[in-house]
Design a binder for these strands. Structure first.
Length: 123
DNA sequence: ACAGTGACAACAT
DNA sequence: TATGTTGCCACTG
């Protein structure tokens, strides 16, 4: 069904975002070697809702991914932004009423070596 | 093969 | 700070 590579790589990275931290779609794209594939990363996460119920994907902390402005995306607001904000608050992240997060406090910067590590594992 | 789509990002107003 | 515009990429039918 899916390419398995890109999606799985995205999930692998997301699974490594520490509890109480967040990162952006663009940063994940960069970690995977595709600096301009931010939209594709969002697309990969969106695909999760079709996989819910599947134990293999229930442990992915998708709520820890926000846009480069540290803001939960507006489109997402239509089907789960409040839920995302709620999940983040549960793990100690302060989310303002207008769904913004202070990246100076909660940003998780993935490292380069992590990229290789993940790719090797899934391949 | 090709055009449309979207949980993005950078830049210009 | 708040919109609008444009470029991107992976995936789909």
């Amino acid at each position: 069904m899916e390419r398995k590579n890109f999606y799985e790589q995205v999930y692998a990275v997301v699974r490594r975002i520490p509890r109480g931290k967040v990162t952006s779609y663009g940063r994940i794209a960069k970690m995977l070697g595709s600096p301009n594939a931010a939209r594709a990363v969002g697309y990969a996460l969106q695909a999760l809702k079709d996989k819910k119920g599947s134990p293999a994907y229930d442990d992915i902390p998708w709520q820890r991914v926000v846009n480069s402005q540290g803001r939960i995306s507006i489109v997402n607001r239509e089907f789960g932004a409040q839920l995302q904000a709620e999940l983040l608050r549960e793990e100690g992240v302060i989310v303002s009423d207008d769904l913004r997060i202070n990246l100076d406090l909660y940003l998780w910067v993935g490292l380069h070596w992590l990229e290789v590590d993940d790719i090797l594992k899934d391949k």
